[in-house]
Design a protein around this nucleic acid. Structure first.
Length: 424
RNA sequence: GUGGAUGUAGCUCAACCGGUAGAGCGCUUGAUUGUGGUUCAAGUGGUUGGGGGUUCAAGUCCCCUCAUCCACCCCA
């Protein structure tokens, strides 16, 4: 009774068909170009890592580690996890390959699939693509600024305008502890006005209450102490330099007191860019400094900063100018008329490609008419026709769909002719 | 994990108060012998997501399940 089952993508995962995949490829090419301009180099880390890397790196208290990881045991009983984010793996690679012995700071970028087991929603998938970059080994604020300028440059290159980055400082661990205590003291009297989630966070991670969406809680928080008011001198100065330099470079930013990120490793500078066009999942990118992460993973006290762009969301709101035009495959279509021409058509198409002219071959056309129709539907502008007549005369017919004209050219000259027409 | 909406041909959708499915697009072919895009015509295509129940009869009502979408949550 094996019901015929239609296979489909698993929940929260999707196919990117040619049009969309092409757009993704363009976005990625732009990222490579711009990031390389800033001296970053690409790294590729495995999709699977030791589960503990994320528990230690991202933080046990984070939601990601708490409930969203694809974790499984391999055949030897090792606990492995599909990477839910990109920074911890890069930090791991930094330590594993002793990049501390490279010229500091190390600047890398990466792109690829990430996995989080969450309920799918607009702009949220269980497998999603991120484009990220990290600078490891420089504690100074100018690095933060350069990273942000690069980010904006990249978005500009994609045609985005008027993007504003939200920025904040979550301080060093000491200021954060102090602030957590203050916030807790402030909220404690209003305990019963808080939702269940926020009440729980009051104990575990008070900072996260700041980015609540509940209107009542938001109102309550307006009178709450500000994180930046309790920043220690080093963190405060760092933040001031960052803001000052951003201004100097004309980066549109907005200080957002409520901006706290969900990953435990962030310190000092944190930022994100959101888009109103995205629905509830409106963050298209986020990042920040993580001066304690490398140490947390067992390495020396090396500072770092980085960001991750949600490529799927970015593509969702991509300006039309950067969207790949759909339809067109190759400009030239080689059509064989009748079975006798198949061998020749195969050869002609290959001759074109050798000469660096993109060509698609149409072997299966039932009739010449059908072949031409297909060529048109594929978006080809030029058609090379061969049939018995052409073979006998040692010629081919070159037709231009745009002007609806055609010419007969000698077989030994057709590559040159086609190339000239196509590039004209 | 919680809530809401939806699930009919490859795609977008239709089918009144239950009477065993239809359109457009697409795809294939044809409109005389080797010439596309327009037009016209024909053809192709669905055990109405799956399972169970109520009924003489279910795409239409009820239950379960799966999936999709949206929100909470979380974050990219």
């Amino acid at each position: 009774m094996a019901a015929k089952r239609r296979f489909q993508t698993v929940k929260g995962m999707r196919d990117l068909l040619p049009g969309e995949a092409g757009t993704f490829a363009q976005v990625e090419a732009t990222a490579r170009r711009v990031f390389t301009l800033y001296g970053y180099r690409e790294v590729r880390t495995p999709v699977v890592e030791d589960t503990d890397l994320f528990v230690r790196g991202v933080g046990e208290g984070s939601e990601i580690v708490g409930k969203q990881m694809y974790t499984f045991d391999d055949k030897k009983g090792r606990s492995l996890t599909l990477r839910p984010e990109g920074t911890a793996p890069v930090a791991r690679a930094y330590l594993q390959h002793d990049m501390a012995s490279w010229p500091q700071p190390v600047k890398v970028f990466y792109m690829g699939p990430y996995f989080r087991y969450e309920r799918p929603q607009a702009g949220r998938y269980r497998q999603f693509s991120q484009i990220g970059a990290e600078v490891i080994g420089d504690p100074g604020p100018h690095t933060d600024v350069e990273l942000l300028v690069m980010l904006l440059r990249f978005l500009e290159a994609l045609g985005f305008e008027d993007l504003e980055v939200g920025i904040n400082s979550v301080g060093d661990p000491e200021c954060r502890q102090l602030y957590s205590r203050r916030l807790r003291e402030f909220l404690e009297p209003h305990r019963d006005e808080l939702g269940a989630d926020s009440r729980r966070r009051l104990e575990t991670n008070p900072l996260r209450i700041l980015d609540t969406k509940a209107p009542g809680e938001r109102q309550l928080l307006e009178a709450a102490p500000h994180l930046r008011e309790v920043l220690g001198a080093p963190a405060r100065e760092h933040f001031q330099v960052v803001c000052g330099q951003l201004e100097r470079f004309g980066v549109a930013y907005r200080i957002d007191d409520r901006l706290v990120r969900g990953l435990d490793y962030y310190t000092r500078t944190v930022f994100e860019i959101t888009s109103g066009a995205l629905g509830a999942q409106d963050a298209i990118l986020g990042g920040g400094r993580y001066d304690g992460l490398i140490g947390e993973l067992g390495g020396p006290a090396v500072p770092g900063i980085g960001f991750a762009i949600g490529e799927d969301r970015l593509v969702d709101v991509l300006p039309d100018s950067s969207r790949l035009r759909a339809g067109r495959t190759a400009p030239v279509c080689v059509i064989s008329v009748g079975p006798a021409a198949l061998d020749v058509a195969l050869e002609l198409a290959e001759d074109l490609r050798v000469a660096d002219v993109a060509a698609i071959s149409e072997f299966a056309a039932g009739s010449l008419k059908a072949g031409l129709r297909k060529a048109g539907r594929r978006g080809c502008r030029w058609v090379v026709l061969v049939g018995e007549d052409e073979i006998a005369a040692d010629t081919v017919v070159l037709r231009d769909f745009e002007s609806s004209t055609q010419e007969t050219v000698r077989r030994d000259e057709f590559v040159v002719t086609v190339k000239a027409r196509v590039s004209a």
